[in-house]
Design a protein around this nucleic acid. Structure first.
Lengths: 359, 359
DNA sequence: TTGTAGGCGTTATCAC
DNA sequence: GTGATAACGCCTACAA
């Protein structure tokens, strides 16, 4: 079969225990012995049996990252940042992977049941940590189920970190740290910006109706409107449509908004991708951006700066947040006081917003 | 500690072996017994210990997916497609969902050593399968190292599939199947298209110099030029610059090309993202697309259709290729004859290319 | 500093 | 159809 620890032990003329100790490195071993063992490992081309050591140590070196949509750079950037923290640097230049954690990214598609399924799978693997990114379904039953699952994971020693997702209400102590994005503040800043430019008829192509992120961004939007004395029906949804986080949703949403209110002078999109769809629909309707209609996105993904016109949006430090979540999951960084640290959102004004057309 | 198989066995008043059998579903068990066991599992909220079963069965339910850059939709789309295939497929019509595989996405950053490190990690986990996506460094030493590693993995029972990567030259039998993209054909089609439009001075902002994909796309480009009688210096690199697969590379590459050859009428980019950067630089130089300069991308990522102007590019069926690779890795689909099936690339002509300005 | 031995939770091979 | 019982490969007190 495959070469085992005792094979190495025999070759190096030591006990299996000693081999285990040099491999794990967290135990004193004589330099000469270690040398001999390492050589044997190399000669035999030995690779540790992960499952066996996970069983014996009752913990694995797997770290799970849950994302809604891996094909969306929003999640890709965070996942990448988390993974980058998992230290791929070999401890002793031997090219041997030392305290290496394997970051596994799990694509839930945003489906509540898949989220739970993956959590169970990770629990089964006795994952060392789990990072949940993105928002979640805004439903008490699902929230409770996830919270319960996370509580069990935490109980079993898995470190749970929330990145860009609101803290748990049910078992708040189950998560090591939560790094929610300030979606509300971002939404408020964006709409305030539009109001300051003079816009009074602002459409909103929001995200999926039942998601926390959608709700928070919308709340920020409405707070800004209310602060400007524009409450009531208009803020209540007359100029709001919902849809998924894709280009098509923006395209169709904009057409629908135009139908409802041809006098529209600005559109806020659920995110940058949706904003691109909005722009396409607007152009198709013969409207110039921003002369006729202003458009704003959210997230500030890399392509937004290159859009034509360059997109006004709200920057979320995805890379930084992911990196921090990764360190938290690894135990490299201390959790913030209260275990919650809100991530600030920053308004980025570019060329897709301007003063409304007069008259 | 945590609840184990024997706890369930006790509660259900059966032996651990029986519990194992109903959980794995691939063994005859009396309906009544199964019922009782399942109930006990539910009541105890039992979750299988993955490492333990992997150890005993000497195989895990992990499937590794290696990608160069998870934040790049090019890889995100493939990874997502592979992962989508890992869903619960019923083993033998029993209906029980047991064949869940955990797809783990590993971000190599395109670095050769990280590629090997991840392969070792996967080997350590006794992964059931490994899917390698994207291209690789065009270096014999590294290719040999990877091939050797893959051979060991295959030897240990891991199913190896190559998706969008050229077949191995060293241990061709180590991989179950290779699905290389027809980068050469795509490159040829693209440049032919430009030549047919009348372009004679075509710049090329290529990918990283030492990668197989870069080489193949470039070869296609030059084949087309040669076929049109435009060989020599121009084809040899006078109008070719290299850089990473990002927007900035396109931006700087285009500026450099413009400096070398102000009379340029077309630019071929390494991929769609790079093409966006090219467009930005061109516009900044006061050039219209495609009236003054035509631009073409590669891959046909979702945003390309929304670019302004919509990008002419070469479509790679990333989603379909990923799905097929996933099925191959799972053993759901038969490997192609010869274990190699080239994935066709299709020219997509949109608005960013046109006839060159006359005079 | 190093060796010995028991156990981690499952699966698989026998019997019954 | 079901129950004992050995592996599976490694970790970790405990001894030496």
């Amino acid at each position: 079969m495959s070469v085992t620890l005792s094979d190495v032990a025999n070759r190096a003329k030591v006990s299996p225990a000693t081999v285990s100790r040099v491999l794990n490195g967290n135990y004193p071993v004589a330099a000469a012995t270690r040398e001999r063992v390492l050589r044997a490992v190399d000669e035999l081309d030995y690779v540790l049996n992960g499952p066996a050591s996970a069983l014996a140590a009752s913990t694995s070196d797997l770290v799970g990252i849950l994302v809604n949509d891996i094909a969306d750079p929003f999640f890709g950037i965070m996942a990448s940042a988390v993974q980058a923290e998992m230290g791929c640097q070999d401890g002793d230049g031997t090219g041997r992977a030392g305290g290496e954690k394997l970051a596994v990214v799990c694509n839930t598609g945003g489906a509540p049941d898949r989220e739970l399924t993956y959590l169970t799978l990770l629990q089964r693997q006795r994952a060392a940590a789990v990072v949940l990114t993105g928002d979640t379904v805004d439903d008490p039953a699902h929230a409770a189920a996830v919270a319960a699952k996370l509580a069990r994971l935490a109980e079993a020693g898995t470190r749970v970190v929330l990145c860009g997702r609101p803290p748990l209400t049910a078992h708040p102590d189950a998560v090591l740290a939560a790094l929610p994005f300030d979606n509300r503040g971002g939404g408020r800043a964006l709409t305030s910006h539009l109001l300051e430019l003079g816009h009074r008829s602002i459409g909103h192509v929001a995200g999926p109706a039942e998601r926390t992120t959608t709700r928070h961004r919308l709340e920020g939007h409405r707070e800004a409107l209310a602060a400007a004395g524009l409450g009531g029906d208009r803020a209540g949804g007359g100029l709001t449509v919902h849809g998924p986080y894709d280009r098509r949703s923006g395209y169709e949403g904009a057409r629908e908004l135009l139908r409802r209110e041809p006098g529209l002078t600005a559109v806020v999109a659920a995110n940058d991708t949706v904003a691109l769809g909005v722009c396409a629909a607007l152009r198709e309707a013969g409207l110039r951006i921003p002369q006729d209609v202003s458009v704003a996105g959210f997230d500030d993904l890399p392509f937004s700066a290159d859009a034509v016109p360059a997109l006004t949006t709200v920057r979320l430090p995805l890379q930084a947040a992911g990196a921090r979540a990764g360190r938290l999951a690894l135990g490299t960084e201390k959790p913030p006081p209260g275990r919650v640290a809100e991530i600030a959102a920053e308004l980025v004004v570019r060329d897709s917003t301007g003063a409304p057309r007069t008259g």
